[in-house]
Amino acid sequence: MLGLGILKGLSVTLRHFVETYVSDLKRFPHRYAPQGRARRLRPTERGIFTVQYPEERLEMFPRFRGALMQLTNPETDIPKCTGCGICARFCPVGVIEVVRAEEKRDGQYVPQSYSWDLSACLFCGLCVESCPFGALYHTPEYELSTYGRQKGELIYDLDRLLAWGQKYAPLGTPPVEQEE
């Protein structure tokens, strides 16, 4: 019969529509309550599974490649980075610039300046992968829009990267550390 296929298709959309509401009513608490979120993310769950973004945020996976951060050596309180510039050489678009300081501090080379230009970064992670001193890592930070592209906005200097590091280092930086 002509039209049977359309009806069959419509039954699918209708079921999706009904499930959106029914599966929510069936189980209290509400889908958008904090406890409801874990349930919403399960692959077996029917109905809506979107995250209401500004109000709710997904937790990033530990390997998530977000903004970069520079770690500080907790014992000596100076940056772990030695300014060797290997990350800058591995970067495919050349958005990292490093200058090594003339003098050592506490017997370790330190960078005089370090800048990371977010506007052209691919977030590929090759810089993190290449750093031999374990100084450079990704943060789970992804809300990085700014109103300008100058220094202090899209161009990050060492201090800002170290500040990210202070914030996120306690959380641990699992994947690369295990391997190196």
């Binding site: 002509l2 049977l4 359309i6 069959k8 298709g9 699918v12 077996t44």
Partner: peptide
Amino acid sequence: AALPAFIDEFERLLTDNEI
């Protein structure tokens, strides 16, 4: 494990659709 059901549903939605 959930994929075959998804493909089936996709087919039910579209394959026989006269339009």
